[in-house]
């Protein structure tokens, strides 16, 4: 299971002059089990803030986040996260990075390496088992980060522009691999991006946020069958639809 409900979420931060800056306004959203949802918005629209609230890393000003009927009040092993920046522990080898969460849960050494090995294979990096993160390319690091988040078998995987820093080819390849992993593991995925192309390629539904303060402008279902062809006319049509929507309705007012 991995059903996510977000109810009337609001978040604001204090400003120097004593007033508060509203970052998220009245966000309500439901994400179904095993659904792949992209949250799309320009930089500064509160995408990351929203994801951090779902992750339990921050506490909302008001509103609730509910996962499988339970309110999220802090980080939980049921929720995994892949960060935008490189977040692998540089002092741990690839396999020890993947096994970290299992180690924190007190799982015995043999068992945790056995599980970690499986996720290492899932992201096709078995030959880099004992390498350190500094020896890996950006794309490989993010694949390890995905494996590390999955190793605890969360029901919900959160991804904060995980491929944003990668070159276009690597990015396309990782998007494809991510969809394969999603098919294989059946997680609910909430993926943040500012790339329309990425959102259309990956998601079942695209949640378009307005610029600050972030509100849900429109929810855009993508009905194209997978695997999707970026160069097909249908793909282009959906893309244009999303872009038009952003330009007409969700731009700065």
């Amino acid at each position: 299971m991995g059903k996510l409900e977000i109810l009337n979420l609001n978040q604001s931060f204090p400003r120097d002059d004593g007033t508060r800056l509203a970052v998220l306004e009245n966000i309500s959203l439901e994400v179904q089990d095993e659904e792949f949802v992209c949250i799309l918005g320009s930089s500064g629209c509160g995408k990351t803030t929203l994801l951090r609230l779902i992750a339990g890393l921050d506490t909302a000003g008001s509103g609730r986040v509910i996962l499988d009927g339970e309110e999220i009040r802090g980080t939980s092993p049921k929720v995994g996260m892949v960060f935008q920046e490189y977040s692998l522990f540089p002092w741990r080898s690839v396999i020890d990075n993947i096994a970290f969460g299992l180690e924190m849960r007190g799982i015995a050494k043999d068992e945790r390496y056995r599980i970690a090995e499986r996720y290492l294979n899932l992201v096709n990096l078995s030959q880099f088992r004992t390498s350190y993160p500094s020896e890996l390319s950006g794309g490989m690091r993010q694949r390890v980060a995905v494996a590390r988040a999955l190793a605890l078998d969360p029901v919900l995987l959160l991804m904060d522009e995980p491929f944003g820093a990668l070159d276009a080819q690597t990015r396309n390849m990782l998007q494809k691999e991510l969809l394969d992993i999603w098919e294989a593991t059946k997680k609910t995925i909430v993926f943040i991006t500012h790339s329309v192309d990425e959102a259309v390629y990956l998601s079942d539904r695209i949640i378009v946020l307005t610029p600050r303060p972030g509100r849900i402008c429109r929810i855009f279902p993508v009905d194209l069958p997978r695997p999707r062809d970026r160069t097909s006319p249908e793909f282009a049509k959906v893309r244009r639809g999303v872009l038009d929507l952003i330009n007409q309705n969700c731009a700065i007012q």
Partner: peptide, 13 residues
């Protein structure tokens, strides 16, 4: 901070 938060997400609380 990112290391501490990555750790929190993985149960290091």
């Amino acid at each position: 901070r990112i290391f501490v938060e990555a750790g929190r997400m993985l149960g290091c609380t």
